[in-house]
């Protein structure tokens, strides 16, 4: 971009400062208990001020309130954005940035201030404008501009409920010489798999196919696990396997609390399990809390896919 081109671009971009993205518009739904409850469930928020009417009636507020952090949710456009957003001054401005190569987008800051709590029955009104656009900046992501939108929320009486400032960086994405390492970093971690060799590969293959097998000596019929090439009882190299019914009992157990390992659920419960067939197996116990596990507990297992790449025996309380 020549200095002249930059000037021309900036003249067009800065013209958006102060432009209204939307006039004061009522939310499609009034504040209501159902949407509040959905929100509280998803967030795992048990705050009774949001969902417990009996508690709230006796509280300082005398009634339930909407979670302040829901403020922006009420005025969202909703499902139609799956088919794309309607054009408005903000989308026009973004399009202009894109035209000039500032295709990168990164939300960097969001600040909500609340002046008033709202309750079921209230209706939120939103108006929004483009509040500021920074000068051209060199950032770690690339050359770009920060723009900030200011959303102002009010209620049905015109009283101001709160504001939201959202700061976004529009930037020219840098050539990424380190793309390879970038890709590597972006991979979603999965559990550390077992390598598969001659002596154990068949066992894991069966797990992939939904079966828990136990190796058996063809000569003396003794079962063994983990799989090994020779029978320790009669030294035969001949073996086959039986399918386990995946019933068992806890011999011992623990829970790995620290360190948290990428790709694993938090606090996995692991156990040594004596299978009904007589061999021991290490696997996870799921479907109950750690505190409910005990030595001697009866378990029933199934083969489950636990992440994108891993299928494992998982045991539940019987």
């Amino acid at each position: 971009m020549t200095p002249e081109e930059q000037k021309a671009f900036e003249d067009r971009i800065y013209a958006y400062v102060g432009v209204k993205v939307c006039e004061r518009t009522a939310a499609k739904d009034a504040v209501n208990p159902a949407m509040i409850r959905h929100w509280a469930e998803a967030m795992g928020d048990t705050n009774p001020a949001y969902t417990d009417e009996t508690w709230a009636a006796n509280s300082r507020r005398g009634k339930t309130i909407a979670p302040p952090a829901m403020m922006y949710a009420w005025n969202q456009e909703g499902f139609t954005v799956t088919r794309g957003r309607a054009s408005d001054p903000q989308t026009d401005m973004v399009e202009l940035f894109n035209e000039y190569g500032f295709t990168g987008v990164l939300g960097t800051n969001v600040t909500q201030e609340y002046f008033k709590e709202v309750s079921p029955g209230d209706t939120l009104y939103l108006e929004m404008e483009i509040d500021s656009i920074s000068e051209r900046k060199a950032t770690a992501r690339g050359i770009g501009y920060f723009f900030e939108t200011l959303a102002t929320f009010s209620d049905q009486n015109g009283e101001k409920v709160g504001t939201q400032r959202f700061r976004v960086l529009k930037f020219i994405p840098q050539e990424q010489p380190t793309a390879a390492t970038g890709d590597d970093k972006l991979e979603v971690p999965t559990r550390i798999p077992s390598p598969r060799g001659h002596d154990n590969g068949w066992w894991w293959q069966a797990v992939d196919e939904g079966k828990l097998l136990i190796q058996r000596c063809k000569r003396c019929q003794v079962l063994r696990h983990p799989p090994r090439p020779m029978c320790g009882e009669c030294q035969s190299l001949e073996w086959d396997s039986i399918e386990s019914g995946m019933e068992g009992e806890v011999i011992s157990y623990t829970c790995l609390r620290h360190p948290a390992i990428p790709g694993y659920p938090k606090d996995p419960v692991c156990a040594v399990i004596k299978l009904a067939e007589g061999t021991n197996l290490v696997a996870n116990i799921v479907g109950c809390d750690y505190d409910d596990v005990f030595i001697g507990m009866k378990l029933k297992g199934r083969i489950e896919q636990v992440d994108e790449k891993t299928t494992l025996p998982q045991f539940y309380p019987a």
């Binding site: 154990n200 011999i251 011992s252 030595i295």
Partner: peptide, 24 residues
Amino acid sequence: IHWGWYTPYGLLTPASWTAMITQR
């Protein structure tokens, strides 16, 4: 191959192996 019987479940550290024996 040996560790592969334990790593997929999260039984990954010396503390976790020792814990299993200790609990018992």
